[in-house]
Every structure is written in structure tokens, then in C-alpha cells.
Lab assay of single mutants.
Amino acid sequence: RGFLEKAAVKKMAKAIMADPNKADEVYKKWADKGYTLTQMSNFLKSKTAGKYDRVYNGYVIHLD
């Protein structure tokens, strides 16, 4: 289950990176699912340092 969630989160993160207008909708879905910042950090780990920082930081702001 965790692997599928991670894959889904990364897919949506890539969608945000391609079209930032989708961010609020995606952040709301993640918040509704109760994803914590720790979970998001783990889901968005990448071999490329900083690749998903913008998405993660946007989610931090959304939760605030």
C-alpha cells in the first residue's frame, strides 16, 4: 500500500510541476487524506536533491 501511495503522490507532484495551477486542488486532496509533512517528505524523496522541494514547500504553506 505504501508503495502505491508513494507512486501516486509522485505522479501528482509531477503534475504540479508541469502545471502549477493544479497545486491547490492536489494539496487539498493530500490534506483530506491526512498526509503529514513527514509522510510527504518520505513520499517525495528523490535521487535528485531538491527535485520536489517546490511541491513540498507549497504543501507546507497549504497546511499552515
Results as ranks from 00 to 15, higher is better:
T48A: 07
D19E: 07
T48M: 08
R54N: 14
W30G: 01
K11I: 10
F3M: 05
V9R: 01
L63A: 03
Y56M: 08
K22C: 15
R54F: 14
Y56S: 01
V26L: 04
S46A: 05
M12G: 10
D32F: 08
A8T: 14
V9D: 02
A18H: 11
N21A: 12
G2Q: 10
R1V: 15
D53T: 11
A23E: 04
S46F: 09
D64R: 14
D64M: 13
Y56E: 02
H62P: 01
A49D: 14
W30Q: 00
L63V: 05
Q39H: 07
K11S: 08
Y52N: 02
D64I: 14
T36S: 09
N57Q: 14
W30R: 00
K22Q: 09
N42R: 13
D19T: 04
A31V: 07
K29H: 14
F3I: 06
M17R: 03
A18F: 08
V9S: 01
K29W: 09
G2Y: 15
F3C: 15
A13N: 01
K51L: 14
L63Q: 04
T38W: 12
D24K: 15
A13M: 02
Y59Q: 00
L44A: 00
K47G: 14
K11P: 01
G50K: 06
K45G: 07
A7V: 14
M12E: 15
K51M: 11
T48S: 09
I61N: 15
T36L: 03
S41G: 11
T36I: 02
Y27C: 02
L37A: 10
S41E: 09
A13F: 03
L37C: 06
A23G: 06
K51Y: 14
K22Y: 06
L63S: 02
L63I: 07
Q39T: 08
Y56R: 02
K28Y: 04
G50T: 06
M40L: 10
Q39F: 04
I16G: 00
Y59T: 01
K51N: 05
V9E: 01
F3P: 15
Q39G: 02
A31D: 06
Y27A: 00
Y27D: 00
P20T: 05
F3Y: 15
S46V: 08
E25I: 10
Y27I: 02
K33C: 14
K33N: 09
M40N: 00
G2D: 15
N21K: 13
F43S: 03
A15H: 06
A49F: 08
A7Y: 15
G50P: 04
L44N: 01
K29I: 09
H62Y: 15
D64N: 14
L63W: 05
A18L: 10
L4C: 15
T38C: 15
M17C: 09
K6N: 05
D19H: 13
D19W: 06
Y35P: 01
K29L: 14
K51S: 05
K28C: 07
V60T: 06
K47E: 11
A49V: 14
G2S: 08
D53I: 05
V55R: 00
A15M: 11
E5V: 10
T36R: 02
Y52P: 02
S46H: 10
P20L: 06
G50C: 08
M17F: 05
Y59K: 01
K33R: 12
Y56N: 01
E5R: 09
G50M: 05
Y59D: 00
D53F: 05
K33E: 08
K51F: 15
D64V: 13
D64G: 12
G58H: 03
K51P: 05
F3S: 12
K11A: 09
L4W: 15
L44W: 01
T36H: 03
F43E: 03
R54M: 11
N57Y: 13
R1P: 15
D64Y: 11
V9Q: 01
E25W: 07
K29G: 09
G2E: 15
K6L: 09
K22P: 01
Q39I: 10
R1C: 15
K14D: 13
N21F: 08
K45Q: 12
R1F: 15
G58F: 03
Y59L: 00
K29A: 11
D32I: 09
E5F: 08
W30T: 00
A13R: 02
Y35D: 00
L63P: 00
S46E: 06
K33L: 12
N57K: 14
A49S: 11
F43V: 05
R1G: 15
L37T: 07
G34L: 04
V26W: 02
K6A: 15
L63C: 06
K45Y: 11
G50S: 08
N42H: 12
A18V: 08
A13P: 00
Q39K: 04
K47H: 11
Q39V: 08
Y56W: 05
I16K: 01
T38R: 13
M12I: 05
N21I: 09
I16A: 08
A49K: 12
K28N: 06
K29E: 11
A23D: 02
K29S: 12
V60G: 09
A49N: 12
K28S: 09
Q39N: 04
M17T: 04
N42S: 08
A49Q: 11
P20K: 04
Y52G: 01
L44G: 00
L37Y: 04
N42W: 15
N42Q: 14
K6I: 14
K11W: 10
M40R: 01
D64A: 14
E5L: 13
K45L: 13
D32Y: 08
E25N: 06
A13G: 02
G34I: 03
D32V: 09
G58Q: 04
A23W: 02
S41H: 13
E5K: 06
T48L: 07
N57A: 13
N21R: 12
V9T: 03
K6E: 07
K45S: 10
K33W: 14
V9P: 02
G2K: 13
K47M: 07
K45V: 06
T38A: 13
D32M: 10
S41R: 12
S41C: 14
A49L: 10
N21D: 08
K51G: 05
T36A: 03
A49H: 14
K11T: 07
V60S: 08
F43L: 09
Y59C: 01
K47S: 10
L44E: 00
M17G: 02
Y35G: 01
R54I: 12
E25Q: 08
V55W: 01
K51V: 13
K45E: 11
A15V: 09
K10I: 15
Y59E: 00
V9C: 05
V55H: 03
A15S: 12
D19N: 09
K47L: 04
T38D: 15
Y52V: 02
A7C: 14
K11L: 13
K11C: 15
I61V: 10
S41F: 13
N57I: 14
Y35S: 00
A13Y: 03
Y56H: 03
D24H: 11
G58V: 03
T38V: 12
K22F: 06
D24P: 14
K10Q: 10
L44R: 00
Y35T: 01
